[in-house]
């Protein structure tokens, strides 16, 4: 067997194989239910230990914290299902956040919408650079985005040159974006929800959305069957970049203090969120809903541990363990699905 094949091997079979689409969907629902269950368990355990965890303020804080990771995880999912990966999102977020702050500092009267669009556009440009290198120059995504991780961050450092944008440099109406709430739900969380629903609907209902999965399952076959593979991959990177830009803008609105180090090291959390959410790292399978749940789960753990007064030192170890459990579970589910498809034959290995 191919050691790398695990999740990738069987999931696409379930998805595009013997017409057992309903089974595949059920499988995915089981998977996502599992994350929800884990989420509920953590929240319940924390709330029992400290009822303050369920206060309105605390839940608002939690939703706000999960916002950025959720948006990034959605974008990353689009890229990962095509069997690519984008490690540069942390740097893109940082760059977009700093650009937004700088715009306000330079043009104090700028309408908020313009700044938001500028941040998103800058992210999309970064995504287009990645996408062009991957789709047109056909360079492995892992290598390209590892390179642009350094490069975009370098541009950010060079641009910032040791300066810092403070909350005072940005208009109150913009900072208000991060603080206002509609029906008790913070605006950024609503934005994230909208992004999740839109991406989920697109992937499920649009032909080009389904094609992303086809590309991820069998790039060769996808190309032969007439899918414009390069164009789709390019588009996935651009959208992911734009979402990273959006996350950067929201970061600026929420945190107010910006320097060149914003978003450093975020990329691995994002990939982790997607993987925990059941997105197969070698493409072809996974949903944005799962990825979003993964992001919320990781954030909840991050907030719950300090409340439970578990030493912060355990936090990273717990996250690592969770990733391993998640991919292990995916593997077991995939093997079982494959066995069912073959009528109880030996498993896929």
């Amino acid at each position: 067997m191919s050691a790398g094949s695990g999740t990738g091997a069987s999931a696409p079979v379930a998805e595009h194989g013997g017409g057992d689409v309903r089974g595949a969907r059920r499988l995915r629902q089981v998977r996502e239910l599992g994350i929800l269950l884990a989420l509920a368990l953590i929240v319940a355990a924390t709330a029992v230990a400290n009822p303050g965890f369920l206060s309105g303020q605390s839940i608002r804080d939690l939703l706000l914290s999960a916002t950025l990771l959720t948006i990034l995880a959605v974008g990353q999912t689009l890229v990962i299902v095509t069997r690519s990966v984008d490690l540069s999102v942390g740097s893109v977020l940082g760059l977009a956040a700093f650009a937004t702050g700088t715009l306000f500092a330079a043009f104090p009267g700028l309408p908020v919408a313009v700044a938001v669009l500028a941040g998103v556009a800058l992210g999309a440009v970064c995504g287009a650079v990645n996408g062009a290198l991957v789709a047109v120059a056909r360079v492995p995504a892992l290598v390209v985005t590892l390179g642009t991780l350094y490069a975009f961050r370098g541009v950010d450092y060079w641009w910032a040159a040791g300066t810092q944008i403070n909350a005072a440099d940005m208009p109150a109406s913009f900072l208000g974006l991060g603080r206002t709430a509609v029906l008790g739900v913070p605006v950024p969380a609503l934005v994230a929800l909208a992004v999740v629903l839109a991406a989920g609907w697109y992937l499920a209902s649009y032909r080009s959305g389904r094609e992303l999965y086809a590309i991820g399952s069998e790039p060769h076959a996808a190309r032969l069957s007439g899918i414009p593979v390069d164009r789709r991959i390019f588009a996935a990177f651009v959208v992911n970049g734009a979402l990273a830009g959006l996350a950067g803008v929201l970061y600026a609105a929420r945190f107010g203090t910006l320097d060149a180090t914003v978003g450093t090291g975020l990329e691995l959390q994002v990939v982790a969120a997607a993987v925990v959410g059941g997105v197969a790292i070698f493409g072809g399978s996974g949903t944005v809903y799962g990825a979003a749940l993964g992001a919320v789960l990781l954030t909840t753990i991050g907030s719950a541990l300090p409340v439970l007064r578990v030493s912060g030192f355990w936090q990273q170890a717990v996250v690592g363990l969770l990733i391993l459990v998640a991919i292990g579970m995916d593997r077991i589910l995939a093997v079982r699905a494959a066995r069912r498809l073959r009528g109880g034959g030996p498993d896929g290995t």
Partner: peptide, 23 residues
């Protein structure tokens, strides 16, 4: 009652503060 570390990171400090007040 507690000492927490924000690692001189804005977001981490923000979250630790949040955790402090809740716990």
């Amino acid at each position: 009652v507690d000492t927490v570390y924000g690692n001189d990171d804005d977001q981490k400090s923000f979250q630790e503060m949040q955790g402090l007040l809740q716990s």
